[in-house]
């Protein structure tokens, strides 16, 4: 299992004791987020809908690049940094 860092966006920080980043383990993006939720169950509501799918307005990055189209299935390696970007629509 690779040790990976997830950078926590502002709107999720209240769910991780106001931390800016959380260290997780996993071989894929999905496994890393499962570990995040295991450590901080309140983060789940920010990421996954009632059916367990990733919210469509969430973009995941791996080392600053979009994880699309693999998203949760994208492989990660030790030292990778994951990011969560919320799509917004206001103007």
């Amino acid at each position: 299992m690779a040790s990976v860092k997830i950078n926590i966006p502002s709107y999720m920080r209240s769910s991780v004791n106001d931390s800016k980043e959380v260290k997780v383990s996993g071989n894929t993006v999905g496994e890393c987020f499962n570990d995040l939720i295991a450590q901080f169950p309140d983060t789940k509501k920010h990421l996954f809908n009632k059916n367990g799918g990733l919210y469509e307005y969430i973009i995941i990055s791996v080392n600053g690049e979009s994880a699309y189209p693999e998203q949760l299935d994208k492989k990660v390696k030790k030292g990778d940094e994951l990011g969560v970007v919320m799509i917004i629509g206001g103007g």
């Binding site: 502002s10 600053g64 690049e65 979009s66 699309y68």
Partner: peptide
Amino acid sequence: LLTFDGFNMKFAEFKVKKD
């Protein structure tokens, strides 16, 4: 995609590719 977080006053970049 340039992202701006005014609460923490941070700009970040998110690289994307033409799909």
